[in-house]
Each structure stands twice: as C-alpha cells, then as structure tokens.
Write a protein that binds this DNA or RNA. Sequence first.
RNA 1: GGGCCCGUGGCUCAGCCUGGUUAGAGCGUGCGCCUGAUAAGCGCAAGGUCCGGGGUUCAAAUCCCCGCGGGCCCA
Length: 1050
Amino acid sequence: MTDRSSYSISILIVCRSLKSMFPSIYSPKDVEREIAEFWNAHQIYQKVKSRGYKKFFFVDGPPYTTGRIHLGTAWNKVIKDTILRYKRMRGYRVADTPGWDMHGLPIEVKVEQELGFKTKRDIESYGIDRFVAKCMEYALKNKDMMTEQFKALGVWMDWENPYMTIKAEYIDSAWWTIKRAHEQGLLERKLRVVNWCPRCETALADAEVEYKDKEDTSIYVKFPVKGREDTYIVIWTTTPWTLPANMAVAVHPSLEYAKFKALKDGKIEYLILAKDLADDVLRKGGYEQWEIVETYLGEDLVGLEYEHPLADEVPIQSNWKHAVYTADFVTAENTGCVHVAPGHGLEDYELGIQVGLEVFNPVDDRGVYTDKAGKYAGLHVFDANRVIIEDLKRKGLLLAEEKIIHRYGHCWRCKTPIIYRATEQWFLAVSKLKDKMLEEIDKVRWVPEWAGASRFKDWVSNAKDWCISRQRYWGIPIPVWICEKCGKWKVVGSIKEVPWENDLDLHRPKIDEVTFECECGGTMRRVKDVFDVWFDSGVASWGTLKFPFEMSEDEFRRIWPADFITEGHDQTRGWFYSQLGASVIAFGQAPYKTVLMHGFTLDEQGRKMSKSLGNVVEPEEVVERIGVDGFRLYVLSSALWEDLRFSWEDARNVLRMLNIYWNAVRFAYTYMSLDNYREMPLSEVDLSVEDRWILSRLESFNKLAVEAMENYHLHKVVRAFFDFVVEDFSRWYIQLIRPKVWEEKDSPAKLATYTTILRIVEKTAKIIAPFAPFLAEWIYQHFIKEFKQAEESIFFENYPEPDESLIDEELERCMDVVREIFEAVSNARQKAKRKLRWPLRKVVIEAKDEDVEKAVRKLEDIIKTQCNVKEVEVVKEFEKDVVVKPNYKALGPKLKGRIKDFAKFVEGLSKDEIADILSKGEIEFDGMKFGVDEALIVEYKIPEGYEYSEFSKGVVYVYTVLDEELKREAFAREVVRRIQEMRKELDLNVEEFIESVVDIDPKLVEGWVDYIKHETRSVKLEFGKPREGYIKEWDIEGMKVEIGIKRAES
RNA sequence: GGGCCCGUGGCUCAGCCUGGUUAGAGCGUGCGCCUGAUAAGCGCAAGGUCCGGGGUUCAAAUCCCCGCGGGCCCA
C-alpha cells in the first residue's frame, strides 16, 4: 500500500508538468484558437462533410449583404449551425450551402448613399452599367466580410461554395419559375394601385412597407351637391393630395344618413353625412345649431351627383360625372362618406373597376403632379396638401381641419412615406393559389406550432396578388420580352436562351440590349423592370441546388423539398411567404417540411437595438468577453421563438458555468492521468452507489437531450446540461468521490469512479458539442483521447444514445432526499452555529415519507460524511417533550371553581398518559369528557441540545452538543486549517515539509497529533510558544492561539 | 378594428402543452461555510396578490372567458 503523503508529492510534481496540457483556468480564447487551428490543419470540416449516409436538406435563409452582422444574424446562424452539427452526429449528410441575398433596393440605396445620389436621374446620368457594377462590387465585398464573421462564430457551412442570387445559375432558377407561372396563367400584367415609394421611384410589395406613426392633417370637406344651393356631402380624408383625383363618394348601403340644416355665422347650410356621427363633426365645424331635415339609408343616396370641389383648379375633372355609390368597406367613422380616388387607393380602385369609374392618376413616378392636375402640375404631392387645403378654405368648402397621428406606411429602405398609385405592374396571381397555400401550410411542421397554424395562416389568408416588378436597376431582370408591333409576350425560362458570358451580362443594362424577332416581324424588347428582391430568395430551395441549370429533375426530386429551415418571426411575411408562393407556383407544394421560427434580439429593457438608442451590442463584443462557445450557449439558452433580451449578466453567467465544467473535468484529469487510467468497460468495475446514481442522472440527461433536439427545443438541452454539470456532477458527485481519488493506486472503487467520470465527460462533451463545438472538441482531444481510443475529431462521433438500463429512478429520488437532508442539516448547523468542520454526534431524521427511510438505508454513509456526523437515525416520530397546559380560557367558564383541580390533574399526568390522551383526542376528568383542542394547550419542545430544520419529506434534528471527544477532533481540524493557511501565505511548495509549534494545551487535541502532522506535512509538532519562523496569532473560537511554522531542515 | 405572442420576487427567465403536496433557477442583497479543483467553489436567509376579474374543477401560475399593459404583424 502506497503511503498517501509520499504519493501526494508525485502528484504535485506531475500536476505542475501537466499545467500546459490542462490549464488551470478556462480561457475561451486559447481553447478556441487552438481548436480552430486543429480543425484547419486536419481539414476536419471537409472530412465531416463527406460523412453521413442519410440526406438532410437544409436551406439557408440568405442574409442581405448590406453590412456587418448583428446579434440577431449571429443568433440565426448559430441556431442553424447547432442543428446541422447535431444532424451530422446523427449520421446525416447535411446540405449546408450558405446563401447570400445580393440584389435589390437595400444595396441600391447604400450605393446611392456612397455616391451621393438623390434620384434616379443621378443614376441614369452616372450610367446604369457603372451603377450596377458598383452594386455588385458592394455586395461581394460585404459577402466576404460577413463570411469571415460567421466563420469566427464556428459556423460550419460550405463557405467556399455559397449560393448567390446574382449568379447566372441562380437567375436561371428565377426565370424558370416565372416561365412556370406564365404557363399556368399566373403571371399577369395589370393596372393596379400599388404601394409606391416616391424617392426610390418604384412599386413596393406589401412586405416592403413598414408602418409607423406619422402626423398628418385630416380634413372634412364639403362636396357641393349638383343643382341644389348650399347643400353638401361631407367627406373626411388624411390625404388632401388625392382630392384632385376624386371620382366618387362611397357610402355604406345600410348605414343611416341624414340631411342636417345647420347654422353658422348667420348662414344656413344643408349637410349630408352619417346621422350618428354628425354631432361631433358639426361641432368641429363650428356650427352653432343644427337639426335633422331628412334621413336616408346609404343605398337611398346612390346616384346623387355632386360637383368636384376642385373642378376650377383641375379642369379635366369637368369631363367626368361625380356621384355617390355604395360600398361595404365604408365604416361608421368620421362622416360615413368616403372620398373615392381609384388612382390612389386599393379599395377605391376596386370600386372604380366595378362601377366603371375612370382610374385617374395625375401623379408621376417622383410623386409630382403631371399636367393633368391643372393648377397643381409640378407640385410634389406632399407639398400640395397645404395648397389644396388653402384652396378649399378660400372656396368655403373646408368644414374643419385637425392634426392626427396615425400609422402610415413607409418605404422599408429609405423610410419615405409611401403613396398609392395606379400603375402597370407585373403580378403573380397568388389570390388564385391561396387555398392551395393554406393546405400546404398544414402539412408543414411548425416550431412552435402557432407559428404556422395561427400567425402564418393569418398572413396568407389576407394575401393579395404579389406585385413582383420594380422599376429599378439592381435585380434579376424580369425575363419578359414584348413585341413592339403586335404586343405578343415572350417569357424566357432559361438563361440558355440569351447570349451571356458573365454574371453582369444577365443584369441591366446589358440584358436590355437583347432583342428577339417576333413572328409578326416586329422586334421584341425586354420590359425594363427587375424582380422584387423577395422573389429572388423565394426560389432559394431550388436556386441553391442549381436546379434546373445543373441538376436533373430526377436528382432534384430525390432531395427537394427542404427538410428544415429556420428564420426570425419577421420572415412570416418575408421568406416563409415568398418561398411558399414561388414553390406552389413551381411545384404545387410547400418547399419545406419543418420550419423553426425564432425571435428577435432586444436590449435588456425589451427595446429594439438601434444606433440611435445607442443600445446596440455587437456579437464580437460578446465573444471577446465570454468566448464563442459562451456566446452560442447564451443565445441558445432561452426559448428560441421568444425574443431574446440581451443581458450582460446572464451572458457572463454562462461563462461562469462553463468554468465549473472545466474545473470539474480538470480535477478528474489530474488524478486519472496520474494513475495512467485507461478505459474499462462499465461491466468490469465495481460501481459504488454514487457512481450508479450519477450514471443514472447522466442517462436521464442524455434522454432528455435527444428528445429536446428532435423537437428543436435547443434551450432545454442547454439548461439540462448546465443543471447536470453544475448541480449533479460538480457540486455533488465530485464532492462525494474526492476522498476516493486518494486511495491507493489500483483501488477498485477508484477505478470505478474513473470509469464513471470518463463516461460522464465523454457523453456531456458529445451532447453539448453542437452547441459549444470548441470546448467539446478541446475536451475530446485533451481528455477523452488521453484515456481511450478515439476518433480524430469529436464530430466524427455519433450523438450519444441514452442507455436506459442504467436509469434508476428510485436511486435518483433517494439521492434527492439525501441532498435535501444535507441542506437541512446545514441549515440546522447554521442556526446552532456549528460549522461543518466540526463533527457532530448524531442526526435524527423524522420521516414523513417512506422514501426517506429507503434513502437513508441506501445512502447512510454519504449522509454521514457530507454532514460530518457520526450517526444517522430515522424515526417515524421524533420524541419531543410534550407539555400540556389547561386551556383556562375555554374551560374556565365551564369548570369555574374546579379549574384549579383540573390544572393539578393535568400537571400530574405522566408522559404515557399524555400520549394516550393525545392519541384519543379527548381527556376525561372527574367524569366529564372534553376534546383535547378545547381542554388543553399542547406544546412540543425539542429536547435540550437539538436543533431542527424541515425539508420536503420530513424534519432533521441535529444533536449539537459537543462532547470532549468531538471537541478535540474539531479543534485539531481548526489548527490544521490555520497551518495550511499559513503555508499558503508563506508561498510554500505544497509538498514541502515543515516544523510547527502551536501554543495550546496539548490536551485540547489529544489523540489527533498524528492527524495534524499528516495533514500539514509537519515533521515535528511541538506545543508551546513559537520563537522562530513564521509566527502568527490566530483566534480560534475566541481563544488566542499563536502558531509558528518554518521549513523543515532536510 | 383583426391576428399572433408575452406579462411569474429588485433584474433576467424556467414551469403552462399533459391542472395535483410548500411556484423553481441564476444574478443582485445579507449572513455564513469550505480551503489538496483554490485569482476558484459551496451553503443558508430575506424577497413572489404567478397582470386584474370572472368561470370550469375536489384542486388553477397551468384550462376557458372578459379586461389591462407590452411587443410584432395586418387593416
């Protein structure tokens, strides 16, 4: 048998030499740098990529290449990477092509800013070719920068071969899709009212409109009724600039209207408006009094003609007749009479088409009135508001005006308020596909479920035809050529049909030079428009496969649709939608099988992160402080579909917990490597009860992890991991097995422990590997490989499957009880001021539950050592002293004078008699019976010397009296601790021997001298006043004690 | 006006789907402990009308309804 003290020297020497191999402090930076280099040098990603035998088709939602990534983008890619790594470890061959969204207004606007441009005219005089080349350059530059950022987050995707929306083969996919739409009659060109950005001078899709509060002037206007003096229809609008295009007034057919006789400034007017809304409106108009002259239903007003209020200013208006129509969209708000301008409103347009109104739009691309607007020609519509209001006022047609704040649409890129304009645009007839789309949504698995079932369905049910044309430059050109002579269309479904040499050739303006000859002999020219950029990403699931440009239909059908996609909840109306629409057109089915919807990143107060608020947190900043693994675990630790409120405190806490993991593994490493441990099968070692317990916990954790992963509940894995590592492994198991690692070399118990630990470290590392790849790989390389045959990389391993035969729920429950007992004992000790260092005689556990007895029987030794008590006892009922007193208040009035006798009787009761009375619940006295509650006040008294504390399944009673024997042991421990503290202060090497002098009466530690010498590595221990070496005075439990130590002479 | 989500100690969040003994963590605060994982670690305590109000039920943080507050999306 090896002597521990000599053995410990060798340990310490070895420890020092191991320092470089397993540093004492977890430094994420060092770990991550080392592992990144290892992966690079050994081409681990490339090797992992070629493994796997089951297909997993993931499609990356392409980020815009407009700048550096932010917290949300980082979170998004980390989620993806974690899922992909997991799937790889499950044997899947994963499609991991990253995507880049490189077209569209986002980039045009940025480049315009760089070049200092304000309007489209600037671009055209600069030259479309140069502008487009700039856009491409900008997009590529950002793509490269963002790629580096993603790589730094440990994201394993095929960065060398991404899909890019600007590439020829990708454009091919888009063109092919449009051709499919055309073949099914779903591609339409029509005059429609669209969202229009007057700055970008282009149509916008609904998805590109951002709503935010805006202050506007709302006005009540009197439209003169034709042929009747002083009679008016009253309308309300927030967009005075649309009045020049007014064509009609709409009322609700079944709403009640009335003609009011109203007096103002001594003048009488007749006003027609909704009956119940009139009071409010007329008051605003400053009328002194009014009364109803006549009432009608809305439908009665149909056909009533009026004069256009600005007929003088806009002469063309006198060409048309203006009248009242009914419409269901009218609500009982404002005046109940709605001004209708078919050229400037969606519903207005529809009504106009229905009843045959002129779709009059006197506003050009820039938002400036054309000559048709008469007096207003050349004015910008937003500037015209004021002028028009003044004109109405002058003409006496303005009834009232007020400021309101309402939600108004703005261009998503340049934030300019949008206007509605009737223009010719290209549409995909989504409205015809709505039912099919809703049907397909049901077939998709949504995480969380409500993402699809509720939120997405709501959006799709409200969807209108998708306007896919943009009057811009940087985008996929719409592949439609129209004959100048006969108007025939040619929809080109493949880039192979046009000449091109490079990607730029397929963009404007080069592509505009391509013409075809029509059957009629005329020349076919391309429409100038480019695609809505949402259409680009809509075709991603086949664009990424280069279908149909490179991939055959057979192969495509084997892979497609996507097994999995994930994006933020803003993509409900974005990418989830554009993909579904494009895919139902192209293939009649949804392009994805599972969709995981995640949240937004917000600051700690739940606000959006924005530069103006100054609350932006950069991913790099977080990584700098807590490492990549820490960052990943932090963002993956809260429910994915909820918004993530970033908190530095929580982020740092993740690092703290990783550090506990590190320390625990390092602790094991020190001893296991010293003992040259090599892996042994579990079946060949003699597992102790704590080994069996932690293994059971490990397998339970493993089971939970796999279930959670399959449900994409990543946060549950992270939480369970920390819970297991911190609570079970570090705080409990390692405490329990500490003494064992000091046993002699081949102690079977120690081997069992090592075998257990190896299994724990291996499984935890593998389970967490997709989340914290660097740390997991590091532990694999430095720990696992040290003790067993292993693969080149942890990512060549399979994700661990739980071994349920090792799960022992009863044992887990018992250990829970023991931990509770330990806590309760600690609590009682604290109350009694008995620190853990002091041994106590016994603890009595009063059990309310049979589990407690079971637990104590099984795990008694653990309780004894951890609680530092000599004896553990379980009882059904702890024997308390019961004290009963007469209840004078209740019995006094009944017994009157005899109460004194009763008191004597009670006083004279023996313990047994009291117990008997209490169990019966009644007391007999002098022939009378009373209930115990009535007659007695019962008090329990814990016997002298005990302190108690409750836990969920009982109460612990700790006997806190220290007898002489315990005191000597306690005192010895106190001395040891002081000497060790002094050794540290002297900066002694831990293996060095010392000589000690302690100024106490040796009787205080009688029987413990050898113990003190052994623990403090003292070759000599004397009692008396120390004279040389390092001397320090201590206070041990109120006693002044001088201790002196010095190096032993060798 | 409509849809969806959220509302749990000072702060950040679990738990809710599948109702069940005393609602859990972490941070922060206070008081201690440990000292052969140690520029770490651990324990205990205080602190909660589970947004409010109804309902279902033997039993509601949990299920249902009505409000209130916040967010996102739409009109």
